[in-house]
Design a protein around this nucleic acid. Structure first.
Lengths: 198, 198
DNA sequence: CGAGCGCTTGATTGAGTTCAAAAATCGTGG
DNA sequence: CCACGATTTTTGAACTCAATCAAGCGCTCG
């Protein structure tokens, strides 16, 4: 239990097994079924979800069109959360749910506070994660502003070849901001031009 | 000199005039002319730019199409920077330049390190700024994924009524990810429907 | 004061959407 | 393990929003 999480955590924050044991003794880990909803709009995001095994997504549903827009996928060793909601204690705009049966670790404020106490490296790790997140979001904005559906799709499979094999195509379309039909056509077009992912 | 910056800084980080004087004694402030380029792709972003007066923008130029895409505007009391480049010490993808004659304060790592030493509030302020940034970027991604040109434009003038009066229309278009011609038509359409900003 | 820049307008094109329906695939219970 | 219903993907045709190309107007600022 917590094996992946421990490994992940110790890689980023140099602490002893004893320290980790102390820190993690109140940590809750859980198996959740596909489709389990972990966060919904209006909720304040009280936990970050470390994916020990499986696959999560965060997404919004547009109120006027009713359409889903996927913000993020998170597979093994990723943390899925609504940072803004958690940090500012505001109701979230997002759903977070499980795309596959998953095992997740619930990370709450108590844990991060304790971690920050124990090791200054945790602060550093966290700061680095924030900057990585910003870099990633900025890259995505730039793509949405400047790239065609095809270019965005190619970028997606370059960045997330694993994810692309594990989620239905319509979710990739949703992430890219196009319709499933359009993505199907983009793929057909690429296949005609003998482009082969993998 | 540094009047705005001092005010801004002391609002966010509770420090005495003496502490601020000590902290800021090596700070460089400068008047720069419209069109002055402060950062260009390939450069590592060594400074954040606090806008004392005037208006900056950060933007990319797509290599294949040659088109500009504005990432951010920054007017008085905003800080414009490429956080990823600065934090990871990597070459930036962005341009930063002045849209108006401006007065800016150069904030470097030395300053932020010293500030963090003097007051723990600075760390907090910085963390808050990072989370704000993330929230903002996420909101923009969601808009780009789900909203029409018209909706994005209305959101823009709601969020940045001041900016919209100070920058040429084609820059707003660039921020929104549409052509100047399209924005012109969107505006005409809104005017026909008797929509009046302000 | 005129050359260039920014904005508008028109005509045309094109990428991606919508709607509809068929084909393929998946998952689950018998 | 198969079969059947549901979900996902594909395909087609019509349509729409925004892009492109081109021309003209009005400013301003150099």
């Amino acid at each position: 239990m917590l094996q992946n999480f421990k490994q992940y955590f110790q890689k980023n924050v140099q602490i002893t097994d004893e320290q980790f044991a102390l820190l993690s003794k109140d940590l809750k880990s859980e198996k959740i079924a596909k489709h389990t909803v972990l966060l919904k709009p209006g909720d304040v995001c009280k936990h970050s979800f470390f994916v020990d095994k499986g696959l999560l997504r965060s997404y919004t549903i547009n109120e006027t069109t009713g359409k889903e827009h996927i913000i993020q996928f998170g597979s093994e060793n990723w943390i899925v959360s609504d940072r803004s909601s958690a940090y500012f204690n505001e109701p979230s705009d997002f759903f977070i749910d499980a795309i596959e049966d998953s095992t997740i670790v619930y990370i709450d404020k108590e844990f991060t506070d304790k971690a920050a106490e124990i090791s200054p490296l945790f602060r550093q790790y966290n700061e680095k994660a924030l900057h990585n997140h910003i870099r990633h979001l900025q890259k995505r904005i730039n793509l949405l502003l400047s790239a065609s559906a095809e270019q965005r799709y190619m970028d997606f499979i370059r960045l997330y070849p694993d994810i692309m094999l594990r989620v239905p195509q319509w979710m990739v379309a949703s992430y890219l901001g196009i319709t499933p039909e359009s993505l199907s056509r983009v793929r057909k077009e690429l296949a005609n031009r003998h482009f082969k992912p993998l």
